[in-house]
Amino acid sequence: MKPAFKRILLKLSGEALMGNEKFGISGEIISSFASQIKEIVDMGVEVAVVIGGGNIFRGISGAAKGVDRVTGDHMGMLATVINALALQNAIEKLGISTRVLTAIEMQKIAEPYIKRRAIRHLEKGRVVIFGAGIGNPYFTTDTAAALRAIEINAEILAKATKVEGVYDKDPVKYKEAKKYDKVSYSEVLNKGLKVMDATAISLCMENNLPIVVFNSLVEGNIKKLVEGETIGTLVEGGK
């Protein structure tokens, strides 16, 4: 089957990597992500990934515990690089070539982020993993995902979560929570829906980049997404 998208950006949360652990990286979960990514690479899809670091350290929570916000955010960026290297290792075990590009230069372990270089890697069939957010404090990895997706001309931003999509309230706390199949950017902003932060949504809205929010812990969902099946919640329109 011909994929519905040629190039996608997949946003993985650091928390998703924990699985049932309290912190750190679940070998089972990261292997599942790697297998699902391999499936779509084998279909000819160019895949870029932005990965969070919340399983190791979050700048905002660090600030609440007395760590300077800027320092905390830089610690969070380094945490994303740890996750990026772990994902790279899991993907390459499956025979897929990858490159980790970071917004903070650390040339012993990764390449510095350069837009043209990232696109060239994608064109050669390599999975590109972006680490260290955008390199600046006060910006989330959601914003980094939106920015990188726009820069590399991705056709869609696929936000992987632990739930089935976007709801009007927290589905974990409220059984009566209603799931949206489709919602506009402006609705997300006006209703304060928990999709991505406002900066990321605004970037996507200004550049007409659709977002799909879906449950990545269900095996095969990433493949279904690139095959054009309706899964999760689509965020677009309403600019």
Score class of each variant (00 low, 15 high):
Met205His: 10
Ile222Gly: 06
Val41Asp: 02
Ile96Gly: 04
Ile231Thr: 14
Ile104Ala: 06
Val41Asn: 02
Lys22Met: 15
Gly19Asp: 00
Val100Asn: 02
Asn20Cys: 08
Glu151Gln: 15
Lys38Glu: 09
Asn55Phe: 14
Ala146Asp: 06
Ala154Met: 11
Val127Leu: 10
Arg148Asp: 04
Ala90Trp: 00
Leu157Ser: 04
Ile29Glu: 03
Ile40Pro: 06
Val41Cys: 11
Asn190Ser: 15
Phe139Ala: 09
Ile231Lys: 07
Glu236Arg: 04
Gly135Trp: 04
Asp170Tyr: 00
Ile129Trp: 02
Ala144Ser: 15
Thr199Gly: 02
Phe57Ile: 14
Ile156Tyr: 01
Gly54Phe: 08
Ile201Pro: 01
Glu227Lys: 09
Ser31Ala: 14
Met205Tyr: 13
Lys159Met: 10
Asn89Thr: 13
Val166Gly: 09
Met75His: 01
Glu176Met: 00
Asn215Pro: 14
Asn208Met: 03
Ser216Pro: 01
Val195Pro: 08
Leu217Trp: 11
Ala103Arg: 03
Leu78Asp: 00
Gln107Ala: 07
Ser26Gly: 05
Ala48Arg: 13
Ala149Cys: 06
Asn20Pro: 05
Gly44Gln: 13
Phe23Arg: 15
Thr199Tyr: 11
Ala86Leu: 02
Arg69Ile: 07
Lys239Thr: 01
Leu147Tyr: 14
Lys65Arg: 14
Thr140Met: 15
Lys178Asn: 05
Ile114Ser: 00
Leu87Val: 06
Gly19Ser: 09
Gln88Asp: 08
Lys178Ile: 10
Met205Thr: 05
Gly95Ile: 13
Leu85Gly: 04
Thr230Lys: 11
Gly44Val: 13
Lys11Ser: 09
Ile222Tyr: 05
Lys6Asp: 12
Ser97His: 11
Gly125Arg: 13
Ile29Cys: 05
Asp197Tyr: 06
Leu234Lys: 08
Thr98Trp: 05
Leu147His: 08
Ile109Lys: 01
Met77Gln: 05
Leu122Gly: 02
Ile156Glu: 01
Tyr174Trp: 13
Ile37Asn: 14
Val183Lys: 02
Gly135Ala: 06
Ala198Ile: 01
Val172Asp: 01
Phe57Thr: 09
Gly66Cys: 00
Lys179Phe: 04
Arg99Ala: 15
Thr141Asp: 08
Ser13Asn: 04
Ala149Phe: 11
Gly14Trp: 13
Lys182His: 03
Ala103Ser: 15
Thr141Lys: 07
Gly192Pro: 08
Arg148Gln: 03
Val213Cys: 08
Pro3Lys: 08
Glu219Arg: 15
Leu225Met: 05
Arg120Ser: 11
Thr233Phe: 10
Ala145Leu: 12
Val49Trp: 09
Arg69Leu: 10
Leu10Ser: 07
Ala177Leu: 05
Glu229Arg: 11
Gly95Phe: 10
Asn221Asp: 05
Gly131Trp: 09
Met43Thr: 07
Leu9Val: 14
Arg117Asn: 05
Ala154Tyr: 10
Ile96Phe: 03
Phe130Glu: 10
Gly76Glu: 12
Val163Leu: 05
Glu39Phe: 00
Asn153Thr: 12
Arg117Gln: 01
